[in-house]
Design a binder for these strands. Structure first.
Length: 108
DNA sequence: ATCGTGACGAACG
DNA sequence: CCGTTCGCCACGA
């Protein structure tokens, strides 16, 4: 059965380990469509509250290591709160060190 | 099938 | 470093 783009995205997001974060672009690559970063964000935007408990959407941020979305400040604040709760520290300017917390680990 | 939209990204200035 | 522009992809009407 062929999974839809959305399903693939959700499937991968669920695999992000606690205490780690990924980016839209990275997810797009894992899905198989490197340039579909926008579509990834679009997919996460479709998540309903009940699904948020199963999908760690908060672990997905932009390539700059920041929470881009400002359309809903409440959600953005919640995201940061959740990440800090998982042990992910934010730098002074609200940026996360992807080198250290990025997933999959690029280090090698 | 075409158009508009959007939690993005890289390139520019 | 910051804001703007253009390109990408998938989805709904």
């Amino acid at each position: 059965m062929e999974e839809n783009f959305y399903q693939k995205v959700y499937s991968i997001v669920k695999k992000i380990p606690r205490g780690n974060v990924s980016t839209y672009g990275r997810i797009a690559v894992l899905v198989g469509v490197p340039r579909a970063a926008r579509a990834v964000g679009y997919a996460l935007n479709q998540l309903k509250k009940s699904e948020e408990t199963e999908i760690p959407w908060q672990r997905v941020i932009n390539s700059r290591g920041r929470i881009s979305f400002g359309g809903d400040p409440v959600r953005a604040t919640l995201q940061r709160k959740l990440l800090e709760h998982e042990g992910i520290p934010f730098q002074n300017d609200g940026q996360i060190d992807l080198k250290q917390y990025g997933w999959p680990d690029n280090e090698n």
